[in-house]
């Protein structure tokens, strides 16, 4: 079995570790580095619960090998709020807060992936329609909410983020 020394920057912290060639990124994050926010739901890239940002792009960390991420910046859901994973309800990232206020989560297992996907969606399209939001979440399965309140949350987060960011406030 080949082993590799890799370096990941996870939520701003530099992490050096040795992984096997076959070690999945999600297992490196969870089992080796204790970032248990990304969850494993399907191991086939269908459910999206393991979604993280790799150099700014939302990726499913169960479909990547850890060695492929060598040298990359990884952001997990633990890195979203300014206060990190210890943030209470008053200190959440605007997207997390919108999920909270819109009851966009129930069991919470898909939620880290939903939040990370939504973050990229809103980065690319600050004012998406409901249909566009639904299309962008197609790769993230939620079994609890029926997506209704998830879509509401992303809509509401889009409003908050636009109001925060003067360059996009008010849309076109």
């Amino acid at each position: 079995m080949y082993e590799h020394d890799i370096t990941l920057t996870v939520n701003g912290a530099t992490e050096e570790l040795t992984v096997e060639s076959r070690t999945l990124l999600v297992h490196a994050l969870r089992d080796r580095l204790d970032y248990t926010g990304p969850n494993v739901g399907c191991e086939s890239g269908k459910c999206g619960a393991c979604t993280v940002h790799l150099d700014g792009d939302a990726v499913k960390s169960c479909t990547l090998l850890a060695v492929q991420a060598d040298g990359s910046d990884v952001t997990t859901v633990e890195g979203m709020a300014e206060g990190g994973a210890d943030s209470d309800a008053d200190a959440l990232h605007p997207i997390q807060r919108a999920f909270h206020e819109e009851h966009g989560l129930q069991c919470g297992y898909c939620t880290p992936g939903m939040v990370m996907t939504a973050a990229q969606v809103l980065e690319e399209e600050p004012d998406p329609s409901r249909e566009a939001i639904r299309a962008s979440l197609k790769g993230n399965i939620c079994r609890c909410t029926g997506y209704h309140n998830v879509v509401n949350a992303v809509e509401s987060a889009a409003d908050s983020l636009r109001n925060l960011d003067p360059s996009t406030a008010g849309g076109e």
Partner: peptide, 11 residues
């Protein structure tokens, strides 16, 4: 919600 949203929840 807060612990579920920030990833600190323990499954």
């Amino acid at each position: 919600d807060a612990e579920l949203l920030t990833g600190r929840a323990t499954y």
